[in-house]
Amino acid sequence: MSVTAGIRPKSPAERLLATNSWLVFAFFYAPILVLVVFSFNANDNVGIWTEPSLRWYREVFQDQAVLNALKNSLIVAAISTVASTILGTMAALALERFRFRGQKFYDGLLYLPIIIPEVTMAVMLLLFFAQGFQWLDSTIGWSPTFGLGTISLSHIAFNISFVTVVVRARLGQMDPRLEEAAADLYASRWQAFRRVTLPLIMPGVLGGALLALTLSLDDVVITNFVAGPGSTTLPVYVFGLVRRGVTPLINAVSVVMLVASMILVAVSFGFQRDPKSRVEPSSRS
């Protein structure tokens, strides 16, 4: 059967579907491809192709402003990923494994940062920090300023929700009897969590952390609002350049950022594949 299915003449509808799909994929990848090609163009003018060169990549890694922004990005991403992963995982555990007063409200609250438009959240945080700093100055005489601190705090605020959703999905798939089995086998609450729950939800936790990392490394709008002088992150810096025009330097920075994204995708597939491929084919014997 399968042999004949392979050489079965394709129906017009089937052919139309296939054409559409490949056109969409072309749409997905053509712009990226063009960008990558142009980033290797030696010419100062983006539109005129002269010869392939690594000139702009060299310039990227000598550009002090870019390097500084990159450093800021990494600091903020590291802080906000760690903090939001811990807070989000705890929130997911509480929601999925416990019943407590105000749970419905809490659940709704956790969805809001995902639903709310980025621009609105940026406005909220800007006014909050401005107002808060003013208040701190007038009450205890401490006047903090906008900078990496405010950026990190803001990134954590939107990342918690995303981590919670991802970890919760994983917890939902996990058989709660496994935790009962651990308790039945003399494990305390903490031991059951440490030895059974945590290892089993780890792909979800790592997936959530990766999502948080990506969101933090990509964020422009919110960061743009809560950054202070000298605390620009890479996307915000690039955004500023991009608004002014197209330059070969931006092409090169963009490709570097793309490559970073790709690496993260590859890592995330690594997480997801690991438990699946080990479990599924072998479970039938």
Partner: peptide, 12 residues
Amino acid sequence: SNFLVRTYAWKV
């Protein structure tokens, strides 16, 4: 992939 970069690609 980075949203900003993907949008920038269209500017190019």
